[in-house]
Amino acid sequence: MTALQPFRTGDTPLPDIVILTHKLARDYDMGGEVVRALRGVSLQIRKNEYVAVMGPSGSGKSTFMNLIGCLDTPTAGEYWLNGQKVSDLSDDELARIRNKEIGFVFQTFNLLPRATALHNVELPLIYAGLPARERREHAARALTSVGLGDRMDHRPNELSGGQRQRVAIARALVNEPSILLADEPTGNLDSATSAELMQVFRDLHHGGQTIVMVTHEHDIAAHAARVVTLRDGVIATDQLQAA
């Protein structure tokens, strides 16, 4: 891996850079008091990197995650996703980016409780505007690929935690996003299931998927090829590690 060139304001990222943040900052107005959650994070992530973002609570990793996931917009700085500057997009354009470019995996799975596994995986395709038949085919394929081909008609409460998280992964990947964004993905899983999940992530990584995973567990972060540590809203360390 060649060293990354420093990015200057006004530049455009290199083609193989999926995520580029430049002096990314986010302030929150908490009843008149401004909290500076992120104070200028500059980071570049290449295609097919597997990055863990760590840091103690209050370090700004959730804020960073929300910005990377286009759920939030920065107060200052730039965010380039897949060669497109998304830091100044409108709400609806951000929704489209979330739909096409980002696959979320949450700690609490965030599946719709009343919907079947299949319908849950279909959701991103609905908002992508795919016709119903194609949607069902795509969703079924995604579920099969995570080993849940026989659980499509089950509701989340009829599935185990690990199965739920795999439904969430199928949902995250069904639109073939540029990045898989996982927020404490093992937080609600026991260690055996966590290990399984890490295997799924490793397989995805080997398949070419770019993965960014926020975690505070060192043994989980150990699965990633690169660990970025945030502290007080800035990057404290950024290390490559042997897989």
């Binding site: 759920l71 709400d91 609806d92 739909n99 719709l112 959701l123 949902r171």
Partner: peptide
């Protein structure tokens, strides 16, 4: 509210 959040995170626009 949570369902709305989930839908939004998956790409639902305001108008959806």
């Amino acid at each position: 509210t949570r369902e709305i959040g989930i839908r939004k995170s998956l790409g639902a626009r305001r108008r959806d």
